[in-house]
Nucleic acid binder design. Structure first.
Length: 733
DNA sequence: CAGCCTCACTTTTTT
DNA sequence: AGTGAGGCTG
């Protein structure tokens, strides 16, 4: 036991050994958050305060859940299977499978991922003859999920205008459709679980009595419904509530755009009567200068619980900043710098390139690729989201649940078997008339459509019969052939990769079987047949897109994707106003504060060395855009920054001689050119200063001489202005 | 009914 | 630039 608590600092120790009551741990970046969380669980078990079955731990990603299990396994010689550790959605799925009857779901209910949900909404609008111009499916999806995540069923939504009233009706229709088809979207898993607990007293009492310790990771990312669910399962209103141990960092809340409510932290502190918030402020990750920069940036936010990171490591190196003329030059410079670092002995996998939006990775990738530097990009298409995999899964879903219309529509004519829009329309009508699923409505059809679709039904039935005795991998193998998917992709020109992925699906099934059905001692069997469980797994765990992450390669990812990770060397790229902070964020409520937190996350990823870079011009959506440097530079104390490019009239900081004169000069030739005009000494792409609007960049020009007018981008906030050179007094900057 | 072409879209992302 | 969706033609 004592070994467990060794090497914890006083605050960490206080958190780990907190008495059995609710506690809020404000854990700064790099302060040992995961360690505290897992050590707390180990300590609770080892001191006999709770049994394994009494623990419920929630994370946001499967990766985090897995990591927690791994670390626990290393700390304690126990089987971790008795505990409920997983994501909100994973745990609710488990709960609903165990109580599917009480939840009014079919035993084989399927889970719709985001794309499936969108397809289901489109189908609904079509059936109901709703104009999808007036009610864009994406917007409706956002509306439905937003309400579900706030805990509102259609009847509870307040609608003051006709438009919203209609959306609420469609929300209700959508829910009815899902119920008919026996499917749940992501927020539905949570809402359904919540409602069941609320409504069913015996079940509620059972779980409230069972889970005595609830532990929540990344609490700042919880949405309203998740908070309510925690409150309920903790028995917050009962005489004997469970102890909730919440760990989070309000400064790292970067998912407000998808419904996370930082306010949950304050509410939690109040409603759960947290005696004292424990702050973990010692950072074990970054050198002093990096931390100082991060602290300085985040200090500009007004809505904070308050926290200041410190380190006992030295201040280390200054932050190196490079301003390139164009995105290509930025990429070139970064790659040169990486080559130098590698020559000096740095491991490529310890170097990360971060960007605000994924579109920025292209130039960087191109440059890395052409110089033969191994790299890995995070956050592309994930395995179970690939077209061919979704097709194969749709066949499996139909076998498990014929009422799943989303799956039906997806593959009824894929590979093509002569079933067109006309036939499908007739089928939709029949299904509507007899209030059945598409699958069941086929028997009502007559004529040609009946034949073609009837053959499809027989195909599915035949698959079900033949595979009834087969194990999951063999079942998958069989349907790949019987459906014609294999043949289809074999015939396709670029189909090799898709074929390989289909084979990989068989492997995934094999792995799933071996992991899923190891009957651990005393473990409750998760309800449902293997096929349904596999399909749920496929939806909930779309697949680690970083399959072989261990490779010795430079890491490329968005800042969002970098949360929770750390690297020796970090490059934050594209630090231009309008890109980072993103222009869309300026108009959003608290948008700039979230961008700042994003910047804070980016900076605190670095252990030893931090680079920041920007480009004066950048290709975006096929067009060259000009921008000025990010406003975040002004928020970092000048003495922490070392400009590697000359900053003329910077107004702060020293002017440094360019260390890469040749790169800078050489890139000039690549700067965008336009027809030569007389712009009174100004040129396109030039940085200028306006008395009222501040710093900007000349984006385009019209006319010449005395009539010349220029369009100037003053960055997010002020935006684009058209100025007559003869009138506006512009200064070169 | 199926393949081809044009058009609009494009922040961040997990489940 | 690259993609997905919808419309048109064979």
């Amino acid at each position: 036991m004592s070994r467990l608590l060794e090497n914890l600092n006083p605050e960490q120790l206080a958190a780990v050994t907190l008495p059995a009551q609710s506690g809020l741990i404000l854990a700064g970046a790099g302060s040992g958050k995961t360690r505290v969380l897992t050590t707390r669980i180990a300590w609770l078990l080892q001191t006999g305060q709770v049994s394994q079955a009494g623990i419920l731990a929630v994370t946001f990603t499967n990766k985090a859940a897995k990591e927690m299990l791994t670390r626990l396994g290393a700390m304690l010689p126990i089987n971790t299977r008795g505990m409920w550790i997983g994501t909100f959605h994973g745990l609710c799925n488990r709960f609903l499978r165990a109580h599917y009857r009480e939840a009014a779901l079919p035993q084989t209910f399927q889970i719709l991922d985001t794309a499936d949900q969108l397809a289901a909404i489109k189908r609904l609008l079509k059936v109901l003859n709703v104009d999808d111009e007036k009610f864009p499916p994406r917007e409706l999806q956002h509306f439905i999920n937003g309400n579900k995540e706030a805990g509102f069923r259609p009847h509870a939504v307040e609608a003051w205008d006709d438009y919203t009233r209609r959306r609420v009706e469609l929300y209700a229709e959508y829910d009815a459709q899902c119920q008919r088809e026996g499917v749940c979207d992501f927020p539905e898993l949570l809402l359904r679980a919540y409602e069941l607990l609320e409504r069913n007293e015996p079940i509620r009492r059972h779980y409230q009595a069972r889970f005595r310790h609830l532990l929540v990771d990344e609490f700042q990312d919880t949405n309203r419904l998740q908070y309510l669910w925690l409150k309920l399962i903790a028995g917050h209103a009962t005489p004997t509530p469970a102890a909730v141990f919440a760990v989070g960092d309000d400064d790292q809340s970067i998912y407000g755009f998808r419904g996370a409510e930082v306010g949950n932290m304050r509410d939690f502190e109040r409603e759960f009567q947290v005696p004292a918030v424990i702050r973990l402020e010692q950072n074990y990750r970054s050198h002093g200068n990096i931390l100082d920069a991060a602290n300085a940036i985040i200090a500009n936010n007004s809505k904070r619980l308050g926290k200041n990171l410190w380190t006992d490591q030295g201040s280390g190196e200054p932050i190196r900043v490079y301003e390139a003329v164009a995105d290509l030059d930025e990429a070139r410079w970064i790659v040169e710098e990486i080559q130098q670092l590698v020559r000096e002995g740095a491991a490529r996998s310890d170097i990360a390139l971060l960007y605000r939006s994924n579109a920025q990775s292209r130039v960087l990738e191109h440059q890395l690729f052409s110089l033969g530097i191994p790299y890995r990009v995070y956050g592309g298409l994930r395995f179970f989201e690939r077209q061919e995999i979704k097709h194969a899964l749709a066949y499996l879903r139909l076998m498990a649940n014929p009422d799943d219309d989303t799956a039906f529509v997806r593959v009824v004519n894929f590979p093509t078997r002569g079933i067109g829009a006309r036939s499908l329309e007739q089928l939709q009508d029949a299904a509507r008339t007899y209030n059945t699923s598409l699958y069941a409505a086929v028997s009502q059809l007559a004529g040609k459509p009946a034949q073609a679709i009837g053959a499809f039904i027989r195909l599915i039935e035949e698959m079900r019969l033949t595979t009834r005795e087969l194990r999951l991998p063999e079942m998958v193998d069989h349907i790949l052939d019987a459906s014609g998917l294999r043949a289809h992709y074999k015939a396709e020109r670029e189909g090799e990769e898709r074929l390989a992925n289909l084979d990989e699906l068989i492997n995934a099934a094999t792995n799933f079987i071996s992991e899923d059905s190891t009957p651990a001692e005393g473990e409750e069997v998760v309800a449902g047949d293997p096929l349904s469980r596999f399909l749920a797994h496929a939806s909930l765990e779309a697949g680690e897109h970083q399959a072989d992450a261990g490779q010795e390669a430079v890491q490329l990812m968005s800042v969002h994707a970098a949360k929770g990770l750390e690297f020796d060397v970090v490059f934050i790229t594209g630090l231009e106003d309008g890109l980072f902070p993103h222009e869309n964020s300026i108009t959003e409520l608290d948008g700039l504060e979230e961008e700042r937190r994003l910047m804070y996350v980016a900076v605190t990823r670095a252990r030893k060395r931090l680079y920041m870079s920007l480009a004066q011009s950048r290709m975006l959506h096929g067009q060259t855009r000009f921008a000025i440097k990010s406003r975040f530079f002004e928020e970092i104390p000048a003495e922490l920054l070392k400009w590697l490019t000359p900053r003329v009239q910077q107004g702060f900081g020293a002017v440094h001689t360019p260390t890469r004169n040749e790169a800078y000069a050489g890139s000039r030739a690549n700067a965008p050119r336009q027809a030569n005009r007389d712009l009174g000494g100004f040129r396109i792409g030039q940085s200028v200063r306006h008395a009222k609007f501040g710093s900007g960049v000349i984006v385009s020009a019209e006319g010449s001489g005395a009539d010349a007018r220029v369009q100037v981008n003053f960055g997010a906030g002020v935006g684009m202005k058209l100025l007559a050179l003869g009138v506006a007094k512009l200064e070169a900057e």
